[in-house]
Design a protein around this nucleic acid. Structure first.
Lengths: 196, 196, 196, 196
DNA sequence: AAGTAAACGAGACGGTACGTCCTGTCTTCTT
DNA sequence: AAGAAGACAGGACGTACCGTCTCGTTTACTT
């Protein structure tokens, strides 16, 4: 390890964290209002911040928006105490789906997915976000397998992707609801015998 | 009011179908290149066409893009002769995944999904496209249920969405491959006992 | 001469001359108001025009401003019927100085001179403007020489620059007025014996 | 050149005069390079100084620039021993013009004139500078008048402005050279009979 | 054959947002 | 306390696209 970089720990004014918060809050607020086009100028004005302060810390509009989402997402994630496997799984899926019943949040997540296809910074944030969620679900599934509720050789990654796949597929195509019944049906399909 | 306007069948130059083709081809070509921003000006230039010729026939950029997709999508749908259920299902999924091994097509589909979140014309075309694909898969699953290979009360819509969910989720997040092994593992998870 | 370029004289919509006028008028109006910072956005808004329409025809803000001046300058140039040399010269100088008694115009000319030092497009417009004015004055001086009122070997270019030099020097330094008396004194110094 | 700034120590409490020098030198160096936009950040970086150190001692960018000029200008003023009037005048003009044969100095003076139109600090410094130069020339002209080489009622202020007018007019318009011949022709036009 | 109407390639237009640059101020740590 | 570093609010710049609006030309049907 190099000991040289630490020589000059920092010079100059330090990043204003209040500005960071204000920007993310403003972005989130605007994202939420469907009547408003989310503009960097609008975010800057809403946050009472200069545009350059945004571009100093985020490489593009999409990156700001992605961060604003990620921040909100962290809040919504509910922590589950470990209970019986099937109940935990069902509860997890119900919670996940319910987050999207808020149309604001659903709209925002759609925009993030869209932006991630174009903007690599958004893609990165979105990738980290989904990886974390997959890990949470996978932990539950692992517990299920360890408790003998899932086959020992079950492809847990595939089961995870099937669950989140349904969520994103319905989020993006809107062809079917993401309600409690859907969550329960999904939980059942994942855990029970489908075939003979 | 007159209901007769249709009396005069047509005057003036007729729509140039070569231009239509050129526009759709150009749009497709640009959609395929991830380094290029798909612009109406770019499409017009690539097609050797005036911008107005595009806007005369399509209401928005998204609509052109959607049409370009719809045209290509029709081509790739593979028709399956009915064989044993599990084989048919596996073959269908393998075919579907293989279409996305062509990075051009995958890139385009990603852009379409993204555009559908913003543009209602694209959303409509995309919706029709996915509905058709779901119907094809559902037909196979129904055959499976009728043959007793799936539980009589299985939620076939959910199973369909689980399959396409995996496809789109992996397409959009790129966190895991969409190869033949994945298709087989997915087919197995859909048909075999996962739980106890 | 080639006869091919003329084959396609022009395609596409033609430049809207009303917009050109509106832009130049707006620029002039803003230039005139000392309370307003002359901005491209401001000019565009004032002219009811898109910014791109300005940048399509002028390479920079300075160029627009320079054109706005040149346009006004053309208007102010008074045409002089030829009379007796000394009267013509005095009248020309008086007219030239009087144009600058309008503080708006003086301020604008100062800004043009300043901009010309930085912006090559302004420099070009300004150069053409001053060359035309010099030519007008030189024509008067030539008449004076031909009438025997100036020495046959007088350096008319130098005399021209001495006259305009006074005008610009006082315009830029503001240390002495550019009034009728100054014009008369200048005319006298140019035509009469200074030395023994 | 660039290894010196590091030598300069902090002085703590009192104003560090080395910093002042470094700033003025840096400003001058940048002013001299027409390819570089003279920015406060650029001056600070070139001088190895914090921006605040500049703003602590000068009220605006223009003020720094003006000081940088004033400093250099003092250096170039040539002192003339009194000789015969016409020789002194010619020598004075030749010296003045020769100073501008150095393109660096000419470029800087152009920028100063330009800046003076915008920035009141520069205008003040520039005004003091030109007043001093005028006084020097006027002293020569007064001697000429006292020696009977100029008419007793000659408008010496006007003659002064005619001389400096030519200098600035040619400096700013670049339409004719400021060489020794020009200086001699100017001296002649100021002192000899132009008219009949 | 002449007239008329629509579609065409080209490209200018009014707008909106972008991301960069610069100014003058403010903040933090160092000397 | 002054200095170097550098973040901050504000605001102008010039570019990129969108969807609309002319131009003059070409193509087809109608008279």
């Amino acid at each position: 390890m190099s000991d040289e970089p630490a020589r000059r720990p920092h010079t100059g004014r330090r990043r204003n964290d209040a500005a960071r918060e204000a920007i993310l809050d403003a972005a989130f607020r605007l994202l939420t209002d469907p009547a408003v086009t989310v503009t960097i100028d609008a975010i800057a004005a809403e946050a009472g911040v200069g545009k350059q302060t945004i571009y100093r810390w985020w490489p593009s509009k999409g990156a700001v928006v992605a961060d604003a989402l990620a921040r909100y997402a962290t809040i919504v994630v509910p922590e589950r105490a470990a209970g019986p496997f099937r109940e935990d799984l069902t509860a997890f899926l119900i919670d996940s789906f319910r987050g999207l019943e808020n149309e604001d949040y659903a709209a925002m997540l759609r925009q993030i997915v869209a932006a991630a296809q174009t903007d690599e910074h958004v893609a990165e944030t979105f990738g980290a976000f989904t990886a974390a969620r997959r890990a949470a679900l996978r932990a539950i599934l692992e517990r299920g397998r360890d408790q003998g509720e899932l086959a020992p050789d079950a492809d847990l990654d595939m089961l995870t992707d099937m669950a989140y796949g349904v969520l994103y597929y319905r989020l993006l195509t809107r062809h079917a609801p993401l309600d409690d019944d859907a969550a329960r049906s999904l939980a059942a399909a994942l855990t029970e015998r489908n075939g003979s």
